[in-house]
């Protein structure tokens, strides 16, 4: 499956990546070859192979429901670009 210009633009938009016009054909070619590799793997007969959700054949460890974190707001907010009244400030998002 070959990706077209508009597919690359859409993927870049979803990932919030700014890409230059000139690079689009190359991205399309590279991404298409990744998909071709996946298609090649799809051709393997996997009947009877259990699909894995994770490369490790292990199960999730659980933690007890205990509060272990203390308030480190000052610490975290020291590296935030803008804060006020304890809030992180971001460019206005409401439409």
């Amino acid at each position: 499956m070959a990706l077209e210009r508009k597919d690359v633009e859409n993927i870049a938009h979803l990932a919030r990546l700014a890409i230059s016009e000139a690079d689009i054909p190359e991205y399309a070619r590279n991404l298409s070859s990744i998909l071709a590799l996946v298609e090649q793997m799809s051709a393997v007969d996997t009947t009877g192979v259990h699909p894995m959700a994770h490369p490790l054949d292990a199960t999730q460890r659980l933690r007890e429901d205990v509060v272990t974190e203390t308030d480190q707001r000052e610490h975290f907010q020291a590296i935030a670009p803008a804060v006020e009244a304890g809030l992180y400030l971001v460019p206005k998002v409401i439409e």
């Binding site: 933690r63 205990v66 509060v67 974190e69 308030d71 707001r73 975290f76 907010q77 304890g86 809030l87």
Partner: peptide, 20 residues
């Protein structure tokens, strides 16, 4: 008492970002 993936408190009404 604590969050789904962290040990921060889930108590309602705390000052902003003190339980993050």
């Amino acid at each position: 008492r604590s969050k789904i993936f962290s040990g921060a408190s889930t108590a309602f009404g705390a000052a902003p970002n003190t339980q993050a």
